[in-house]
Amino acid sequence: MEQNVICRGLSKTYQQDAIIVQALSGIDLDVPKGDFVCLSGPSGSGKTTLLNLVGGLDAPTGGEITVAGQRVDLMSQAQLATMRLMHLGFVFQAYNLIPVLTARENVEFVMQLQGMDRKERRARARAILEDVGLEGLENRRPAQLSGGQQQRVAVARAMVSGPSLVLADEPTANLDSRNGEMLLELMRKMNEGRGVTFIIATHEQLVMDHARRLIRLHDGRIVSDELQR
């Protein structure tokens, strides 16, 4: 099976003054294309760190990471930016929309950076905003949307440019259960319909229940890796 993410002996240490924190230690991980993986564990277990390293948002202190066939740990900042732009989508806990852009413009943002022409951009943005149930709200700015609506815009933005991998960090943490459920359904739909790989870091049972594969971390190590269905 074609692998989307491969980690070998991945480690990350942080130093704060004299204290050294081992956030990740010797992680070996293979995530096949189209998988729906959930990283779980208590706070400080290394879920977000692993997600950041895979997404090239942070640099490992040891080991290798390969995403979509490219060695992320060897890339420059500019190469990482291009890799994120062309292959990755991000959904963060705190919505993270661009406040000065409308919902449609937020969704179009990545496509615009990719240099896609306006007509195609518009069509794709309209279609995906409909898919996430935000038709009619396209011209609202983030401050005029509810938390659930904002997170749906974030998912739409992460998906619209056709990434091979979406990384989501606690995407439902700020949502009520109804909105959380809706968001997960949406992600499952994207995963099944478009074959996009999802890696979601969470400590919420609801998210774990939706995952096809559940990886548990503790003190920066993988303690279990199970297929759920």
Partner: peptide, 16 residues
């Protein structure tokens, strides 16, 4: 700062 991090996460190059 957060927004700048977001721009970078979304693939905006440092020069941009």
């Amino acid at each position: 700062t957060r927004e700048i991090g977001l721009f970078q996460a979304l693939g905006m190059r440092p020069g941009f």
